[in-house]
Amino acid sequence: MATSNPLAIEVTNLTVAYQETPVLWDIDLAVPAGVLMAIVGPNGAGKTTLIKAILELIPSASGQAWIYGKPYRQQRHLVSYVPQRGEVDWDFPTTVQDVVMMGLYGQLGWIRRPGRREKQLAREAMNKVDILELKDRQISQLSGGQQQRVFLARALIQNAQLYLMDEPFQGVDATTERAIVTLLQSLRQQGKTVIVVHHDLHTVTSYFDWVMLLNVHQIDSGPIEAVFNEDNLHRTYGGHVGILSSSADVPPSQVLANEYS
């Protein structure tokens, strides 16, 4: 038995419905520890819903998620969540450092306030994403890329084993995008597992090593080279993905038409 390589996430029979409209149907997903995985699929495929259901932010009609072999509730401390940037009000009166420290609130527990140790940890986390000089800046004065880095620092400070990120590349500049990719890959090198809801099919093969194709039903998941192929993309996106060439030795990322970005 391959107990030496436990699964980071195992989702069993997950079905989620909003107001009785199913958004996810009987999803089974197994993600081995230490991979960098993209969840791709068309709009409305339930990518964000999947992450939120794993985190039990929304109720599921059946099924649940297992994190390193135990139900999510027992493993919260191993998981870090990076929501979409648009989910919070960036005009909130607070500073970069303060938001980053929020990542430690769970470890602090009720009532205890962050102190010197937490500030030090926050500085380290901000340094990792290159925003240390913005530490006292009000969060409304940040660019999209900087906001995303703040969220990443808040996730890094949690020192989790598993990272769930919702569209971290959305609306960020090219420099930030590269920085994020480097960061994600270094997380993987440390043996952490990173799962990213991703929009841009062109970059899937270069950024990630694992992929899940989702469109309400799970189409497929596994190593990029095994799963990320025309056939599966067709099944995920219907007729929307045009195929320029069917030559077998062209990697799928170059095969994809520009319709998707």
């Binding site: 932010l57 919070v88 938001v99």
Partner: peptide, 8 residues
């Protein structure tokens, strides 16, 4: 600021 994050 971010109730969903708080929940996690």
């Amino acid at each position: 600021f971010d109730p969903a994050f708080g929940e996690t």
